[in-house]
Structures are given as structure tokens and as C-alpha cells.
Amino acid sequence: MSQPAALPIAEAGEATLRSRSGRPFQISSGLWALPALIFLMAFFIIPLAANIARSLPAEDMFRFYAVLFTDPYYLGVVWQTVKVSAITTVACLLIGYPVSYFMVRFAGRWNSLIVFLLIAPLLTSIIMRTFGWTVLFARKGLVNTMLLGADLIEKPENMVNTEMMVYVGLIHVLVPFMVLSITSVLQGVNPSLEESAQILGASKLRTFLTVTFPLSIDGIATGCILVFVLTNGSFLTMLLLGGGKVTTLSLLIYQQFTLTQNIGFAAAMGNVLLLFALIGMTIQLRFLRRKGVK
């Protein structure tokens, strides 16, 4: 070192001793997030908070929640909401997993076509897809006409307005989300792991159950939570394909709003839905954190 090198710290000038924050260079500052923060505060956080207040009337705070969780009818609705979401989730997983597996292991050059076909339904409205099912399965629809023509049935069966139809409609709308979630994780699973399991003597089924499936569990979890939460928030499918046979919280909120205008009660039901969504989000964050993804 040349010149008056390496002064002991105590002798260095006052100015050079001043400690600075040491913040690194950035093009953006917190100010850049301010408009979005204000907007989301005003039109997302505060309305949701106000909605919680709305569901807690001053005279009898927990009246609506008490009804919701004790009255057999409403308790049934809550139960049915969970049940419909759970069944849809499991069905989407069972139906979608083989498709993901095919995409990752065998699709090759067809992969982008398959991705496109999975996203294509997003280009159509849910009303259109629901309408399609109605056209297919209505009393004078295509399926009845064909079955009658083939003398398989004697009179047209009513296939719309059944619980089954609701599930078909929900699965149709939501299964692409499951497939895309699982695929993105399955892509990261190295095929050589499966090969090594087979070299070690595992059968194909055993390899799948002990290697492939456990390794794709993160994608399964993400997909399941997504489908579960989305089902919770749907009401159009129940409204148009259920014929009143399937009543969930979302549908009830819609009906409360359009018919009875019982605002406080609708707010309480919405908050129960929000609670389900929050539980889902928490589980998802856990999963992501465990994976070390930010």
C-alpha cells in the first residue's frame, strides 16, 4: 500500500467514520408500490374488513354465525359446500393425473398442442360450457335423441338438474388447473430416478407408487388447494346444472342477494368462504416454504 495507507480507524476523519445505511442501488423505491398499496387498501382490504363488521350486528354479535352453524338447513349447506369441493378436488386429481403423466413422459412434440388444448377452454365463458352440457343432456338434447334412436331407452331421461351433472360441469371447468399444476412439478422429476428404481428391481406400479407419486406431491397439493378454493367460490354451475339439488354457500349468497336481500347473513356466509380460502392459502404457503420457493 502506498501513501498514508491504513490509518487506524480512530484517526480517520470524522466524515469517513459516519456509518451509513449501506443500502444497495435500486431503480425502484417503496414509492413505486404506493399506488397499488393504496388501491388495494381502499378496494380490497377495507371492504373485506367492513364485510366482517357487517356480519356482526351490534345487538347480537354472532347471531348469523350461530344460525349458520346450528340450524340444520344451513349446517347442511356448509357441509355440502365442503363435500362438493372435496369430491370435485379428488375427481379432478384422479382424472387429471394420468394426463399430466402422459404430457411429461410421452407427449414430446405434442406437448405444446396439449398445453394449448388445456388453456383453450379458458377462452370460452363458463356460461358457454354449462350451456353445452345442457344441450347435450337435456330432455331433447343430443344424448337423449341418440339413445332414443338406438332404442336404448323408451322415453327421454332427465339428465340435467342432477347432482351428477353439477360434478361433470365443475370437473370440466376445473380439471385443466389441476393438470397444469401437477405438470409443472412433474416436469422437474428426473426420469432417471424412475429408471434407477426399476434397475433396483421395482415393478412399474411399485416405481410409480414409491418414486413418481411422492415426488409430484407438491404439484398435487397446489392443484388440490386451487381446485378446492375455486369450487368453493363457484355458483354458476350449481345454479344452471343443479336444478336446486345442490345448494352451496356461494349459491346461497347469490340467492340471498337477489331474493331476500338479507345482507348481514350473506356477509357472514361470505366470510365462512373466506375462511376456507385462507386455510387453503396457508397450507399452500407452507408447502411453498417447505420447498424453499419464494
Binding site: 398499496l37 371492504p47 367492513a50 356461494s250 345482507i263 380460502a277
Partner: peptide
């Protein structure tokens, strides 16, 4: 950490049931 929390808030409207969001916003 503040940025992390903010990111979660910014992404949250996707996960909140739309019917609840619409309903709450109407009154607001």
C-alpha cells in the same frame, strides 16, 4: 419482509372468492 408481505397482499385477490369480493365492494 415488508416486500414479501406486500407481494402476498397483491396476489391475494385471486384466492378470495369472487362472489365475496363483489358483494363487499358493492356496499363499500
Amino acid at each position: 419482509n415488508a416486500a414479501q408481505v406486500f407481494t402476498n397482499v397483491m396476489l391475494a385477490p385471486i384466492s378470495v372468492p369472487a362472489i365475496l369480493l363483489g358483494f363487499s365492494l358493492l356496499y363499500m
